[in-house]
Design a binder for these strands. Structure first.
Lengths: 262, 262
DNA sequence: CGGCAAGTTGAGCCAGGTCAACTCCGGTGG
DNA sequence: CCACCGGAGTTGACCTGGCTCAACTTGCCG
C-alpha cells in the first residue's frame, strides 16, 4: 500500500460542523454539552486518510480513541505467511476504543478509501463519559454494536458458503449505510479485494458470487460499487442459509429437489 | 437437547460468597460497595443450568444482564436448514449484556455444560455503573474484551485452516481459563461437537486435527477434555498461520520445502 | 495513450465436508 | 454387578466447493 510510513497530517478538530459524529442523530459529539464539546474540540485531532494508509501503533498509543466521520477503516491482521485478514470494518459513526490493543500483535487500522477521522483526546473522552450519561450510553451502545456485529460476522464466516456470505454482506452494508435515495440500492464501500479478505474468501470467488446472484436475477450490478436488490426475499433467504428453497446451484437443481422431495 | 422448555429454577442471589464475580480479582461484584452489593444481591437471581438448557427469550427480556460464575455459555444461531453456529463462548467472569438482542433472531444462549449464572437486575446494574467508576471500568473492559475476542475469533474463522484454528483455540482456552496446576496443561471446556460448531468445522475434522497435532508431538491428549502443550513455539507458529516453517503436512513436506527454497 | 492494479474468466486440484460404519463411555435398570 | 442403550467421538472412503494459478479484460491515473 502507499505511503504507510508518512506521518499523519493532523490539525485540531475544527471540522465539527460537518462531522457525522455531530450531525447524525446517534452521533457521539451531538450528545455532549457545549462546554464538553469545546474542550474535546481543542484537544482532539482531525485527520484525513487515503486508501492504504495505516494508523501507526505509536499514534494509537497516544490517540487510542477514534471517531469515524466518513469512509471505511479496516482492522486487519497479517498472518506470518502473508495471508491478510480484515477482522472488522469501521464506518461512519463508529467509535473505536483501541486502548490496550495498540502495541500488541492484534492488528492494524488501515483505511480502505478516503476516510476522515477524529482522534479524540482519551482523557477528555473519559471525562465526558464520566460526566454525561447520554454520551456514556451512546459510547456504550456503539461498543456493544461493534461486539454484536463481530459475532454476527463470525457466524457468517463459520459455516456459511460463498453466496450466503455475500448476501449477508449486502444486508450489512444496507443496514450500516442506508441509502437516502432508494431503499433497494446498496453502496458497497470496499473493493473486491478487501471484501474477499473481510469475508474470508478469494477475490475470484467474490466475483463469481456476485455474477451468480446477478444471473439468478436477485441483484443488479451497477458499476463496481453499487448494487440493487431485485428480489429481496430470496436474498434474505440466501443470507439466512436456507438451502432447501433457495441456495442451490442451477446445475444441481434436480438433484437437490429430489432430495427435498423425500 | 434436554428440558429446553422447563422453566429456570431460580433463587435470590445468595451465592455471592462463592461466586467468581465476587472472588476473582477482576470480578465485577468485587468492585461494588457493600451497599451496592446488598441491593444487587436481593434484586438478582442465581440459576444453575445443565448442558443443553437455553435461556429463554422472555427471560432475557426481563433479565438481559448475565454474569457467569462458572461453566460455559454459548451464543448460538441456527440456520434455516439446520446448520448450527456457535458465535461466541462466554466463560467465568464474563458479563453479558443482551439488552436489545433478546427478541431478535440473533441467537440463543445455551449452556454447554453445568453452568452457574447470576442474572443481574438491569436497573440496579445500571445504577451501579452510573455511581461506581471502578465497576463501570470493569464492565466496560469486559464488554471490550468480548468484542476483541469476537474479532480475533472472526480472524481465525476467515482464513485459517483446520490445524491453525485448533491451535488458536488451545491458546484461547489457556488464556481464558488459566490452569492453576501447570502452565502447559489446558482444559478444553467444551465437547468436540460444540467445538466444531464454534470453529466452523466438522466434528470429524476436529478429531483428525487433534490427532495430527498429537502425531507431530506438539500436544499430548489426556482424556477427552485435557491436553498438554508439548511444543509451545511450534503450536504458536501454527496458530499464527506460519505455513512456511510449520504448518505443512508430512506428506507434502518435500513439495513445500522446495517452494520455500526458491 | 501507455502503464499498472483491480477485476474477471477458465481449468484443475485439494482441504475439508459428507456419509457410513465402528468404538467408546457414562448412565440406567433388571 | 452386568447387559443394554444412546449419544459422543473416531476412522475410512469418497466427493465437491472454493482455492490456486494463469491468462485475459477493464478501469483509473498521469
Amino acid at each position: 500500500m502507499n505511503s504507510e510510513s508518512c506521518p499523519l497530517k493532523t490539525q485540531p478538530a475544527c471540522r465539527c460542523q460537518t462531522c457525522s459524529s455531530q450531525t447524525d442523530p446517534g452521533g457521539f459529539c451531538r450528545h455532549l454539552t457545549q462546554c464538553q464539546l469545546e474542550t474535546l474540540k481543542t484537544r482532539s485531532r482531525w485527520s484525513s486518510l487515503l486508501r492504504g494508509e495505516t494508523i501507526k501503533s505509536e499514534d494509537l498509543l497516544i490517540w487510542p480513541i477514534i471517531a469515524i466521520s466518513t469512509g471505511v477503516l479496516s482492522f486487519q491482521q497479517l498472518l506470518e505467511d502473508g495471508r491478510k485478514i480484515i477482522a472488522a470494518l469501521f464506518m461512519r459513526g463508529d467509535i473505536i476504543d483501541m486502548r490496550g490493543l495498540a502495541n500488541r500483535h492484534h492488528g492494524h487500522l488501515i483505511a480502505l478509501g478516503k476516510t476522515e477521522i477524529c482522534r479524540l483526546s482519551p482523557r477528555t473522552f473519559e471525562a465526558a463519559i464520566d460526566d454525561n450519561i447520554d454520551a456514556r450510553k451512546v459510547a456504550w451502545s456503539s461498543l456493544r454494536r461493534q461486539g454484536n456485529r463481530a459475532m454476527d460476522h463470525g457466524a457468517d464466516l463459520a459455516k456459511k458458503q460463498a453466496l450466503e456470505k455475500l448476501a449477508s454482506f449486502v444486508f450489512e452494508c444496507r443496514h450500516r449505510l442506508p441509502d437516502s435515495v432508494s431503499d433497494s440500492k446498496v453502496h458497497i464501500p470496499v473493493r473486491r479485494l478487501d471484501l474477499a479478505d473481510y469475508l474470508g474468501m478469494q477475490p475470484e470467488t467474490v466475483s463469481r458470487g456476485f455474477k451468480e446472484l446477478q444471473a439468478r436475477g436477485i441483484i443488479g450490478i451497477e458499476g463496481i460499487s453499487n448494487i440493487e436488490i431485485l428480489d429481496f426475499p430470496r436474498l434474505r433467504r440466501i443470507a439466512n442459509g436456507d438451502k432447501h428453497t433457495e441456495n442451490l446451484r442451477q446445475t444441481h437443481e434436480n438433484h437437490f429437489q429430489a432430495a427435498t422431495g423425500s
